[in-house]
Write a protein that binds this DNA or RNA. Structure first.
Length: 504
RNA sequence: CGGGGCGUAGCGCAGCCUGGCUAGCGCGCCUGCUUUGGGAGCAGGAGGUCGCGAGUUCGAAUCUCGCCGCCCCGACCA
């Protein structure tokens, strides 16, 4: 009779969004903080989601002509120093290795010994080390393009960390390519942004805005940075992937040059692009609800979990074979080009508890199978995204399960798109813009704001003004039609406009 | 790195201000019985260097100082 329905996650999103996020991760058993400052342990369920992301992206990279390779974790400090903007961008957050040995200390314990002649940086990104290799590999226009990708970990010594969204060490992929012409490199940059956007929308069911970063938000050393931006359920923006056109900046810094068709020695054009385990955080904040994680079927480690219900050995001996055969039939079906991922969970714990575990972990479909279902040749189906529960004839379920998963995938996308649209507005008026981003209760800010679209001129003055509101320019959408008028912040005439939001 | 909060059993917390029996409570865990279509009930039980280190004191979870970690806000960033 409580006025509030009990939710699996407390607090709810409305009550305390950041805490809700932490609790979802715990309840779904995705990850834990580790004894190492700023670093997380990704647990099997969380890692399985990442593996599914990896598998799909890896296939997409290969379909676009890329090959995987691996470069060292350690980068000589002098490499990082080569590109001025690049150094400045990363210098503040680098882990530095200075010794190569440990010796017993004077009062027990160990002390570093064997000082390195040149300190090594634990890679925050690999432009420089890969560029050094590119310089060796590229001599002729016939060597180009080189299209590489690596899956690895990187370290950025962050002041403030959040599980999946920002940790000192994280997993990612970084693509690095070299091209003979600017046009080709630009095309590559655009192609990979498109791969990311497609992945986000079709696999993560997460609508994104494709856009270009302004000067202040650009990758250190890049000529242009492109991004996909997604809206989380607290209406903050999350940069979910970036693709950089590096121009000849790194080529010049690292002497990546070749002889073209005319025998002229020229600098090459490079790109880089990456997505990280941050995508898991994006996934959580896009779809999950007050009962825990909600997973889009295409990335769910399990599509269907079968929960046998029985009271005694007699019933058990009848129910289990029914479940087994159901599993076998389900595994014979295919969804998104692979066999259905099915779990038969016959652990000896209470049904209610077990059921909730799978709800909290976001399994798209649950089948509760007891004697009644056997008698009716039916399954009792629970659907995670809508919460709907109903009995369905077994044959009908088997005939429809694949399209049902498709429907869930579509539904999650539609819901997320609806949220994004509802909280995206055009602004011509500074006061309205400010009101949009000002919480009602500054002590304990409620969920507010969203994506604001407005005209602007790309100057530091604008970014200063935005700082007061804790708002950033997310991007200039790629499909932005020029809209002549005045800059919302400075009043100067302009036809450029951008998406503004509070961001992670 | 600046401001704020927190750190007591696996999780969530009380106790601290005003130092003093054996450090409690809820959930979870183990055992038994009863249950069983829905996050079970009863009984019994296990589990704690009270974040770490110094200090004050006859005596510290409690007071003082230092350090570490986590969370929130800021600066910075994927």
């Amino acid at each position: 009779m409580g006025k509030k329905k009990r939710t699996a996650i407390e607090p709810t999103r409305q009550e305390d969004y950041p805490e809700w996020y932490q609790q979802v991760i715990r309840a779904a058993d995705l990850a834990e903080v580790s004894p190492v400052r700023g670093c997380m342990v990704i647990k099997p369920w969380g890692f399985a989601i990442w593996e599914n992301m990896q598998a799909t992206l890896d296939r997409m990279f290969k379909e676009t002509g890329h090959e995987n390779a691996y470069f060292p974790l350690f980068i000589p400090m002098s490499f990082l120093e080569k590109e001025a903007e690049h150094v400045e961008g990363f210098a503040k957050e680098c882990a530095v290795v200075t010794h190569h040995r440990l010796e017993p200390g004077p009062e027990g314990g160990l002390v570093p010994a064997g000082k390195l002649e040149e300190p090594l940086i634990v890679r925050p990104t690999s432009e420089t080390i890969i560029g050094a290799m590119f310089a060796k590999w590229v001599q002729s226009y016939r060597d180009l393009p080189i299209l590489l990708n690596q899956w690895c970990n990187v370290v950025r010594w962050e002041m403030r960390t959040r599980m999946f969204l920002r940790t000192a060490e994280f997993l990612w992929q970084e693509g690095h390519t070299v091209h003979a012409t600017e046009a080709e490199a630009r095309e590559e940059t655009a192609r990979m942004l498109d791969v990311y956007a497609t992945f986000a929308e079709e696999y993560m069911a997460m609508p994104v805005i494709r856009g270009e970063k302004t000067e202040g938000e650009r990758f250190p050393g890049a000529v242009s940075t492109y991004t996909i931006e997604a809206m989380m359920q607290d209406r903050k923006a999350l940069q979910a992937g970036t693709s950089h056109f590096l121009g000849q900046n790194f080529a010049k810094a690292q002497e990546i040059k070749f002889q073209d068709q005319h025998g002229q020695e020229v600098y090459a054009w490079t790109t880089s692009w990456g997505v990280s385990t941050r995508l898991v955080g994006a996934l959580i904040m896009t779809h999950s609800d007050d009962d825990g994680l909600v997973l889009p079927p295409k990335l769910a480690p399990r599509h269907v979990v079968i929960l046998p219900i029985y009271r005694n050995d007699q019933e058990r001996s009848e129910v289990l074979p029914y479940c087994e055969s159901l599993r076998a039939e389900l595994e014979g079906l295919s969804f998104d080009g692979a066999p259905l991922r099915v779990q038969l969970d016959d652990r000896d714990i209470r049904g209610g508890e077990k059921n909730w575990q799978h709800i909290k972990r976001g399994v798209p479909l649950r089948l509760e199978i007891g004697p009644k279902d056997l008698a009716q040749e039916a399954v009792f189906l629970g659907r995670r995204d809508t919460g709907e529960k109903r009995s369905v004839p077994r044959s009908e379920f088997l005939a429809n399960v694949v399209s049902l998963l498709e429907e869930i995938q579509q539904n999650l996308f539609a819901q997320a798109l609806k949220l994004q649209k509802e909280h995206s507005h055009w602004f011509d008026d500074w006061d309205a813009f400010r009101a949009f981003f000002t919480p009602q209760n500054p002590e304990r800010p409620e969920i507010h704001g969203g994506f604001a679209m407005a005209r602007f001129v790309d100057t530091p003055a604008v970014e200063e003004k935005l700082k007061e509101l804790k708002v950033t320019i997310r991007c200039v959408p790629l499909d932005a039609e020029p809209k002549p008028g005045k800059c919302l912040f400075t009043g100067e005439p302009t036809d450029r406009w951008a998406v503004f939001a509070k961001a992670y």
